[in-house]
Design a protein around this nucleic acid. Structure first.
Lengths: 381, 381
DNA sequence: CCCACGATTGAATCCGAAC
DNA sequence: CGTTCGGATTCAATCGTGG
């Protein structure tokens, strides 16, 4: 029995007319992802983001040095008989995903060393074209409690297009702008999903054992999709993809089997407010010469897209856009460029010009940068 | 025609006698790596480090990083056949490597997204057991000149043992010590090989297009090998593995076909001076310590039968019996068993749980163990 | 209100020598 | 070979509590 669970997000972001007509936009489809994908029209989806089962093969329990128990992934959905079965499953869902992708569509898959080599080889076998493998470096990974291996401190994402001649969306300048005006690298640093962001049930247990951080999806969608695009997540879980897609003015289609996950995802996504169109406009063309790391403030949650920056006299108000650029009185660009423009000057250090209102006080954004640097410093080399 | 090129390193590092007798130690074998590996005795090598040819899908057939032809590929194979060919090559050399590895041997393979997924899946298919995938983060990667992808700023290494029940060498404590006393993570930051380290020919061109930095091999060998171990590199190139192995008191066996690479490697390795044995001593953890039976404290007069042991909060009092067992609140047995039982836990390290009263102070019985070990040490010296 | 401290937790293929 | 059991093993971040 297959149902469709819509959310109120359906009408918020702009979408192409044909997509609205033929696709269950901003909806969670209940059931097996292969069956549900095969029921969608071919060539209709812009991007797939998939977080499939990793097939961890954990047999025994694990305790911390203080004898406490580690809650591993022992769910049925991660159980397979052997690699042959896992490979077959992988081939099937990747083939189904390829069918629903538009000719210029692309896919992201995340995994660990347990499964990512099977996934990568199968992607290549099916004719997908690799663009990058991307490393999510975890700021706070779980240690290796037995001292037998290196701390498993990363996961691998593969970004591939539907075929070799697909022309993928890649917002190069926006990414560069948000990364100190240097090219975005293939190694990304984010904390794992904890704290307020981690969904808990009524018993204060985690709803999903492997919820991904929104910052990760934020970068994926900002990098390789446009507002109005349709993002399909065949392993929707608790809906991180949907939440970030809605926030960023993209449409999502989620597929999930577990009702507990679906219920949590629906509630979660309902509370998301999409960012304003103006905020979402990505920078086009070459950008400022000065080095800025402003975008990382947004990725790491120290500043919300749509936030207002003020100069010390509150004369100018600038809107922070999702890619880390500012918009103020007709000027747009980096914090430095806009700071200079509104003052009628040729140059300006945005870090020591713009403030953010915190209660009664104005706080210099340079203080937020210091916080970022402090975080990075702990992790360097 | 196969030759063997020895270097003067043969006699420098200590090696087991049997290895010296049957293996071409500290030698570069000329020719095809599969043939030469198959000519080596089975179960004779401690560690394999391999930097195999990349598979560049844009080219016809299998090429090295320098575009030279690896195998006689005459046909215009389609993609599937190309991958099949690369997979066959990968399976053949990985199977040959597995045969020459000792039962507790291990392998490292480095690659990029072009080939590492084929390599990883084949390793699993052949029964190797993954320990970690490790990310080499390049401090100074080549930028993506066309701005179409993320800067390819890393390469992936796979560390796997010969089989699931192999007991791999892993110098956990030495690594932790060298990493600011925290566990070594799976993401490593090193610059690419440039400057003085980069081998150049008479025209000042680089001898090898993908020479790896010695720092990378240094960490690999320090982490997963011991002095005297035999390291096999089937794609020896200009001999980074051999140079670092010699420096670190390990033996190497290199296999290479190109005489230009071999000549550069021979010259390079000849100039390496092995580090002194004393310098090569690493931090050892408690696991390396000899076991001390609790009863020996009594035998050696450090503790009297009938003595009282206390936990740190003096909640439990245990009586030491003449045979070295404890008795406490109806529980009896080893210091570990009783410690676990009184706490209601499944395990406990009695040495770091129980104390004896000395005057006003509580002294951990682990200190008495240290005294025993100190005495044993003086006796053996 | 702020700081110190303790408790908790996270996609994990997590022991090995002796008998 | 399997079983037993000694005893070795954790980092960053969040959240709650108490001073």
């Amino acid at each position: 029995m297959l149902r469709e669970l819509g959310t109120e997000a359906r009408d918020i972001a702009p979408a192409s007319e044909e997509a609205k007509d033929v696709l269950p936009i901003d909806t969670i489809l209940v059931g097996d992802c292969i069956e549900r994908m095969n029921a969608l029209p071919a060539g209709s989806v812009d991007l797939v983001f998939a977080d499939p089962p990793y097939y961890l093969q954990l047999d025994k329990g694990l305790t911390r040095p203080d004898q406490s128990n580690v809650a591993g992934v022992h769910d049925d959905w991660d159980k397979f008989n052997d690699f042959a079965h896992y490979d077959q499953f992988t081939r099937d869902w990747l083939a189904a995903a390829k069918r629903v992708l538009k000719p210029n569509g692309a896919i992201w898959v995340i995994g660990s060393y347990h499964n990512i080599f099977r996934v990568g080889a199968t992607l290549q076998d099916l004719g997908y074209w690799m663009m990058n493998d991307v490393i999510w470096r975890k700021a706070n990974p779980m240690p290796n409690f037995r001292g037998t291996r290196f701390t498993n401190a990363h996961e691998t994402l593969i970004w591939a297009t539907r075929s070799q001649d697909s022309k993928a969306v890649f917002n190069y300048d926006a990414l560069k702008q948000s990364n100190d005006d240097t090219q975005m690298r293939s190694d990304w640093l984010f904390p794992i999903c904890t704290g307020q962001e981690r969904l808990k049930d009524e018993n204060d247990d985690k709803v999903h054992p492997t919820q991904k951080p929104e910052a990760l999806l934020y970068r994926v969608l900002m990098a390789t999709s446009k507002p109005g695009d349709v993002i399909l997540d065949p392993f929707f879980g608790t809906g991180t993809t949907g939440a970030v897609a809605k926030k960023l003015g993209r449409h999502f289609i989620g597929i999930e089997r577990e009702s507990d996950y679906i219920n949590a995802a629906l509630k979660r996504i309902a509370s998301i407010k999409p960012l304003d169109k103006v905020v979402l406009e990505t920078v086009k063309g070459k950008r400022a010469e000065k080095r800025v790391a402003f975008g990382s403030l947004i990725e790491q949650g120290l500043m919300e897209p749509g936030a207002i920056l003020l100069d010390s006299k509150k004369k100018f108000k600038a809107v922070v856009r999702a890619d880390g650029s500012l918009s103020c009185e007709g000027h747009e660009g980096s914090i430095h460029k806009v700071g200079a423009a509104v003052q009628g000057q040729t140059a300006c250090n945005g870090w020591t010009y713009w403030h953010i209102q915190q209660g009664k006080d104005l706080v210099l954004i340079d203080e937020l940068r210091a916080e970022i640097r402090s975080r990075m410093h702990k992790l360097s080399a």
